[in-house]
Nucleic acid binder design. Sequence first.
DNA 1: GTTAGCACTCGACAGTTTTGAGTGCTAAAA
DNA 2: TTTTAGCACTCAAAACTGTCGAGTGCTAAC
Lengths: 342, 342
Amino acid sequence: MTELSERKKLILAAVVEQYIKTGEPVGSKELLSLTGMSVSSATVRNEMSELSAMGYLEQPHTSAGRVPSQKGYRYYVDNLMKDREIDELNRRMIEAGISSAAGDPEKLIAQAGEVLAELTKCACVSTAPGGDAVIIRKIELVPVGLHSAMLVLLTSNGILKSRLCRLDCELTAKICEEFYNIVDSCIIGKPAADISVVSMQTAAASVDSDPFAMLPLMAAVCELARSMEDSRIMLGGSSNLFSHKDYGVGAIELFEFLNKREPLTAVMSGVKEPLDIIIGKENLYRQLENSSVIVAKYSVSGKDSGSIGLIGPTRMDYESIIPSVKYLTDIVGRMITQAIEE
Amino acid sequence: MTELSERKKLILAAVVEQYIKTGEPVGSKELLSLTGMSVSSATVRNEMSELSAMGYLEQPHTSAGRVPSQKGYRYYVDNLMKDREIDELNRRMIEAGISSAAGDPEKLIAQAGEVLAELTKCACVSTAPGGDAVIIRKIELVPVGLHSAMLVLLTSNGILKSRLCRLDCELTAKICEEFYNIVDSCIIGKPAADISVVSMQTAAASVDSDPFAMLPLMAAVCELARSMEDSRIMLGGSSNLFSHKDYGVGAIELFEFLNKREPLTAVMSGVKEPLDIIIGKENLYRQLENSSVIVAKYSVSGKDSGSIGLIGPTRMDYESIIPSVKYLTDIVGRMITQAIEE
DNA sequence: GTTAGCACTCGACAGTTTTGAGTGCTAAAA
DNA sequence: TTTTAGCACTCAAAACTGTCGAGTGCTAAC
């Protein structure tokens, strides 16, 4: 990719920024007044014409102004955009919004997502801390009536899940004891990902008393471990998408796409960089072709642990959104680290 | 309200049903072929004209057919609609959809809402079992690390909630013991609604050791009791609203209205009858003026316990939706009753 | 009370014109 | 070689026009 002349850069940046601001195609005269360049509109037109030929700009139709192409956004994001600090206002909003959930990592991430979505008017996808390295720290069995109990599971990243479990037979003290034996020997300290139905069945079979009493409990443990993974992904502020006229009725389709969680998981896990920006058709899913995705990872105790992503129209305000995302992942990572290292 | 002639009833019913089916205004000729009446279209026009004058029908514009007015729908629902049994297919769908969540009342209601929404293509609001009569059955304190613990709360209607709680000081055995003392004497058996911040503070103050150690725990209990109430209301299938062309872009506003839960709570709690149908502007909220709400209560152990409501366009298929709602509340009530009486 | 007939209304649709913003090109100026 | 002014051209959006047809309301006759 050949380097652009300074004047072309100036024009491209102005087109992108103005288009982001107004949503209207930008014409040559408007551009003159925006940049304050001391040349005529004809000169600008020539430059724009070349930028179009090079693929950075495009025209909705012959007699309209120019609009950034996907390539144009990409160049802008990679080379032209200023690397700002987060706005004071945004910073305050974020801090105020998440402080109330400081103690509970899962709630914290959920809340962080809501705040960020509200701030940016985008949809926010976030994943609770987790990943392969999550180990099970503690399991507790709380009896509830004669034939059922609640299982409580705590992991190394501070996530807490509970689930009701019904037994076929009475929940005796002996069963409880044996359950805790199995838990201590086969589950505590193991990665959540390793808890499989088979390993649990084997464990249940090794028990002194009736193994069938133990099965529902073991099954519940499995399901709980599984749900750790499944419920990691969270979606917030998806109705913000309706406020962007860029999408038009397409907002509905996008909304429904986001509410099917599976593809979201794929999108989030496809990200490798600490901060990744995926523009328009660079997305793997057709449903996102008019959207940009900004994903940043956060780390807990120095390890990548989850990420927070924003989904909005390609015409989003990258320059102000990116610092917010960076700041949020940073602070969230620190807060969770602190919460679990007590 | 004067009684309508048989022929007027026939015509009104036909207009309502046809309009529900097609969404198009119904004209005089069309009505003839629908009802099979042996009079001319002019006669039908005269009748329709009178029905319009009486307020049961209205015209979108001079040269269009007639559409039921709100009063027309009301008359139809109260007097003309047949009281059908639930469709075999719907019954099966409901049973299949909710069977997997039989053990956990809260999940069951959530799932029931999803199924009903899917079946009817409406949004479904439901409230988990609860109300004034809910008493706290059990509280468990599960230590998690040195300075925090998870509180688990179980109520008489089978709802289970947990919450992480951080302490300022170390969680000693003594604190645990004292906590359980307070719980046993002041909390268990009490209605959840009675748990107030003040009563908890008093309880914390009565303790032997440092009352400040107990405060966060008591605060968490309060919050948990409060959240029992707050989290009762659930919304499912709200994106179905987008599929109704009746709403047009208004669907977005309605969607956003529903996602603010507060007004929903008001709508649901305003209902007194076992089965209530609120049509169009009868709703208290402007945002629902083009919608109808059908709410049915379910009862657990013979007591009213919660309700399930549907929200859809005024032009909804009352005749098939109502039996589904009735059936669902009935079966859900029985399932929960069975689950908690074990 | 019912019917046939007819004038009338009005939205939907399709085609036409007008408007104005914005471009591309060319020839002259710098 | 770069820049500029001027002008013809393009095209979407908006305003306007005329036609069509479904459906009504009214009247006079049955």
